[in-house]
Design a protein around this nucleic acid. Structure first.
Lengths: 359, 359
DNA sequence: ATACTCAATGTCAGCGTTGACATGAATTGT
DNA sequence: ACAATTCATGTCAACGCTGACATTGAGTAT
């Protein structure tokens, strides 16, 4: 294991000639006591200076500050936090898949909002493995994180109930928790998708496909509901031929689109349920939106340059709101759980609405 | 300020009828002593069980584990770490701009590699503000992070020298540190760019532009050097008319490209120095690579679908290597500083090499 | 039977900090 | 001039944990 405190065996060699360049630690970190000794005051007085208490003479304060600077003193927050009931100022954000740019934008929003409240963000990934979720969370709780922000992966978050009762706020992002009273921030999945599909219908489309995977996700189910709802309103009661809801291990969105286009009555428009599906659709269609209209859920880099219409939202706003919920919950642990919906809006760039359907 | 320990004023109201739904913390967290009391053993024995010491009867162990489970005991790592010399298992990654997707991918690589060594990643942003770098780092050091990973923003990291001597590894990412002996992981900026430009020259291009900002960055300077080197090899000694190295507040890459195209002798090929510049170029050119060839530094989502050639590398690998340096340095604090170069490779997708120059 | 080993458990102190409380000196009021 | 107040500073204990060391009792060797 890693242990930097184990001094190297250098002293065993009386004359280490081939000694490498940088030096290891000579002295250890200065403590309040060290500073106090140098300044000729008690550790407590140093503490007062560090904490900015007013009950210190200007003269003493300067002496102490000089000593602190000389010794490169840096207060030990571990000790401080222990003393104060093990309350830290780190908030954990537990993500499934770190490589999804979506979550990083969320993380950016969280980081920024938390920083404004003196809180730091610790990032932990579960690699989309439900089993590792509890393990990761457990590790974080041992570190006494102040609150937990998470994109729930496991099918059950009941294991957090005890912790919640102990006062650790839990805020779920993108999907609600299962079997746990927790605040959550989600997208306007249903309405956003329904509105986009309604737009396609208004443009004359009837055969509208929906491509998405994995189908089991809360977000995708909501979007699917929105899709179906809009079609139902238009009198299309069975959209199933155009639904492609493959699961993670099945065919990719790219395959699904090729499959759709090969149908005897191919769809005239495609809606992608998430940004990964969007990538697949774009690859399969190769920018030929004269043939098939396309709207993706979730904006992406250069979608504007490519003229692709999307159901967009602000991922950073998701993070910001979640962080705000954390802060609010820390301020007031009591109070009914909240669910915030982040609005989506259709950005029309040509791929979805300017198309004249073939039939 | 935030303080969840402040109990609500509920007890002042004898009969709180309009009480909200969830409950606040009833009891506090169990400690080793609590578990010991319940199991009828000393705290030390509980500690032994928790740490997995062998010198405990099977019977005692089970009693203790049962008690721990009953009390939902969770070891306090703050106390543990304090006891052990304030050595934590969190490593900080200090980034300038969180919204740059490049850094996400780096962070993902870091997180993954660190996790394999039982280390956690704490993310902190400086918002590309050199002045806030030291402040942010200082805060992190108070938390006693085990090591520091950073993308240096400030023009001087000498303030970390003391900390380095105390044994905190510092690894710089993407650019080397200034005035500080530290390990670093950088890209093959010079060679990667030179090779790409050589390719354009081989394809017959002579008027090759370089668009990038801000010009002051180490990475961009290296890339610029590579660009000039390749041109020099081809006998083009003064590329300055085609260099567009505007700084952050100046015109955007998009503007620069329009400007270039409006020249009396416009470039036949453009090289972008980073992914932001690439976006700008793509927007300005609008995919018309028949007119002007294009190669960007740094791959991006859907560059493949758009057929854009890039100088690519693996950002996650950057992170992984950096994390590995941290771990190595923790194992062996002595040893000469290392600089690792992450290889780049030219991915030809059509925008750069299949073009027939106009002249 | 006596000393000797060893395993299981306990006692204690201290990691660095700060709240509660104590002390002593200077200042104030009357 | 003397108690009352204020202010700067100090003493002490405890946050939760675990290394160093002590203790106990059972088993083993002579």
């Amino acid at each position: 294991m890693i242990d930097p405190l184990v001094s190297s065996a250098a002293e065993a060699v009386p004359d280490a000639t081939a000694r490498p360049i940088p030096t290891a630690q000579a002295q250890s970190r200065a403590t309040l006591a060290d500073v106090g000794r140098l300044a000729g005051v008690s550790p407590k007085t140093v503490s007062r200076v560090v904490l900015g208490s007013s009950n210190v003479t200007q003269e003493t304060r300067e002496k102490v500050l000089a000593a602190a600077r000389a010794l490169r003193f840096r207060p030990n927050h571990l000790a401080r936090n222990l003393r104060h009931g093990s309350v830290t100022n780190t908030v954990a954000f537990v993500i499934g898949d770190l490589t999804n740019p979506f979550y990083f934008l969320v993380a950016a929003g969280i980081e920024r909002e938390l920083a404004q409240h003196g809180l730091m963000m610790i990032l932990a990934a579960t690699d989309d493995d439900p089993a590792s979720e509890e393990r990761v969370v457990e590790t974080l709780l041992k570190q006494r994180v102040r609150a937990l922000l998470m994109v729930p992966i496991a099918s059950d978050q009941a294991y957090l109930e005890g912790e919640r009762q102990l006062g650790t706020p839990v805020v779920c992002i993108d999907r609600p928790a299962h079997n746990l009273i927790a605040d959550s921030v989600v997208l306007e999945n249903f309405e956003g998708t329904a509105e986009a599909v309604r737009g396609l219908i208004r443009a004359g489309h009837r055969r509208i496909a929906f491509v998405c995977s994995p189908a089991s996700l809360y977000t995708h189910q909501e979007r699917l509901r929105g899709y179906r709802q809009a079609l139902r309103e238009a009198g299309i009661l069975d959209p199933s031929p155009w639904e492609r809801l493959e699961d993670a291990d099945g065919p990719t969105a790219e395959d699904s689109v090729r499959d759709l286009l090969a149908m005897s009555e191919p769809p005239t428009a495609i809606v992608a349920g998430n940004n990964r599906a969007s990538s697949g659709v774009v690859r399969a269609l190769g920018n030929q939106f004269e043939k098939v209209a396309f709207i993706g859920f979730d904006d992406f880099e250069l979608a504007d340059a490519a003229g692709i219409s999307v159901i967009a939202y602000d991922p950073a706003e998701l993070g910001r709101q979640a962080a705000r919920l954390v802060v609010a919950r820390l301020d007031d642990p009591i109070g009914p759980p909240q669910q915030i919906e982040i609005p989506t809006r259709l950005i029309q760039r040509g791929s979805g609405e300017l198309v004249v359907p073939l039939d």
